[in-house]
Design a binder for these strands. Structure first.
Lengths: 193, 193
DNA sequence: AATAGTTTGGAATATTCGTTCCGATGTTTT
DNA sequence: AAAACATCGGAACGAATATTCCAAACTATT
């Protein structure tokens, strides 16, 4: 057997976060994680300590890959409003095209674990603040470029759109379809006029 | 021991739904339910079949008591906009004053169980449709009374405000405070002008 | 007061779970 | 090629789990 790690840490965390997203923390067994990741029992405990630690690492991995999506959108040559529109379009598209996808690991973690695990609540809370700040910066960019006109501080709209985002994830898990989600986004974006 | 049931079904379901709300379905053990409800093991299995069945009944009980809150607000002598404002004020107040409350059982159920249990997804989906319809009726009432003026069908706003509602529950579980939640409601309600 | 009818407490069971451990398997280094 | 080292597969363990079962406890009826 190999002398150096045979598996790719990111691949493992991606597979694990998928399972956790589908079944939740308490709903997934170690065996399910083993088959999903292809890891052996010993390797998993050797490299990730235990189930709870693996969950936290999966959560942070998920958050980071989420951040990357936001950041690459942020770096595009668009004004803030266009970035906002593109983001929502992408989210709705993803939710519609992946109906078996169980929402968002961060939202699910907030629902299942944030009151039981302080570290989980920290990740979830940090994510909220970061995404809100990014959205706020997009909105004040659009205001500066006179694309939109605001009657409230940009920060408030950042909070509002983050709320809209969370709602979309819950609604798609509650059986909402494409037009329903699009309607929500339409009304939300119209608040900028 | 008594000849007729010693316990109140509603009290039991209320206690059970509180535990399920705090710890989720997979996170709560039968023993926790027993101490929370004061029931004996045999009585629980005698009256509620098993854990999964108890969960579904708790979910429906929670939904019904939720419905009652909405309906009693609906019966008040207010126009649709006032009802909407009162509802949001009540939700935010509840979230702020009960920081240990783990959000909303229906939202948590959507996140944890809707993809794993068809009956759960049915309850969650029905709740979505019913609440949306009620909100829509409030909005078209406000429009008829010329309190507001809409540029989209009332139904669309019902979907939007339901989304806002779901978002609030997730955000409060993600550590959002009073002003944050109030800001969200403010922007959402301003979409009606 | 005795019987019939129900609930209840707690022991018992079978299953599943997370975790540990060790011999086997392989790779790198000498 | 052999020693040193790390990983891996799978058995094994203990704890926790959901569920069943039965005798004891109690009330209402007769």
């Amino acid at each position: 057997m190999p002398k150096y790690k045979q598996f790719n840490r990111d691949k493992v965390l991606e597979a694990a976060s998928t399972v956790f997203q589908e079944k939740g923390y308490n709903g997934t067994s170690i065996d399910e994680i083993l088959t999903a990741t292809g890891l052996s029992r010993s390797s998993l405990y050797d490299s990730f300590k235990d189930k709870h630690n693996l969950y936290l690492q999966s959560l942070e991995f998920y958050k980071e890959s989420n951040d990357k999506t936001f950041q690459s959108l942020d770096e595009k040559d668009l004004n803030g409003l266009q970035k906002l529109e593109t983001m929502f379009k992408g989210v709705v598209n993803h939710l519609v095209e992946n109906p078996d996808d169980n929402g968002c690991l961060l939202v699910n973690a907030a629902a299942e674990m944030s009151k039981q695990c302080f570290k989980t609540s920290q990740v979830v809370c940090n994510n909220k603040d970061e995404v809100q700040n990014l959205l706020s910066s997009w909105i004040s960019d659009a205001e500066q470029k006179k694309v939109i006109k605001l009657d409230k501080p940009a920060k408030v709209y950042g909070q509002f759109f983050y709320n809209t985002l969370c709602g979309l994830r819950v609604m798609s898990q509650s059986g909402a379809g494409k037009t329903e989600l699009n309607n929500v986004v339409k009304v939300a974006l119209d608040s900028l006029n």
